[in-house]
Structure formats: structure tokens, C-alpha cells
């Protein structure tokens, strides 16, 4: 059964949220999801770009007031 883990990277500057996401993805199983919370404006563009390049799957991107929630599913 797949699981979701949330990483709170609010306050971290580029490329901190992306690096935290990648480190977290290394530790979970295929099919699991990582939700990254970020105040870095580049995250909403950088993460989908990275996900498309390396072959994972994008989930929802949601603006939550002062930050974004970006969900990535580990696909390989």
C-alpha cells in the first residue's frame, strides 16, 4: 500500500526544496508520494521540470496561502 510523506521546506531557498524532495524520494518505495511544502516561488516550476526529466509522476500543486504544496509520486 502506497504512503505519503510530507516534507516541510518552508523558508528554504532554491534549490533547497528540490534537494529535500530528492533526498526524501531516495528513501521511499515506488508508488509512494512525497508532498513538499515550499515558500520558494521557483518550486512550482522547478519540481515539475525535474520530475519530467527524471521520470517520476507529478501530483497536485496547490497554493495554500503563503506557501505551495507540491506532490510527487515515485515512479522508478
Amino acid at each position: 500500500m502506497s504512503e505519503r510523506k510530507t516534507i516541510d521546506a518552508r523558508g528554504s531557498f532554491c534549490p533547497g526544496p528540490l534537494m529535500e524532495l530528492i533526498a526524501a524520494l531516495k528513501l521511499v518505495q515506488i508508488g509512494d508520494e512525497i508532498e513538499i511544502l515550499s515558500t520558494d516561488k521557483g518550486t512550482v516550476n522547478d519540481v515539475p521540470e525535474w520530475v519530467a526529466k527524471v521520470g517520476h509522476e507529478m501530483g497536485e500543486i496547490t497554493e495554500k496561502g503563503d506557501h505551495w504544496s507540491v506532490v510527487v509520486k515515485k515512479a522508478k
Partner: peptide
């Protein structure tokens, strides 16, 4: 003052990941 990631730490993360 903003506390951006230290460049040497970024390089170490890049090597690790």
C-alpha cells in the same frame, strides 16, 4: 542574511544524490 543554502553543502548534496 536570507540564509540560503551554503554552496559547499549544496555541492556535497549533489555528490551524494
Amino acid at each position: 542574511s536570507a540564509g540560503v543554502p551554503d554552496p559547499l553543502e549544496l555541492l556535497k548534496q549533489g555528490k551524494m544524490l
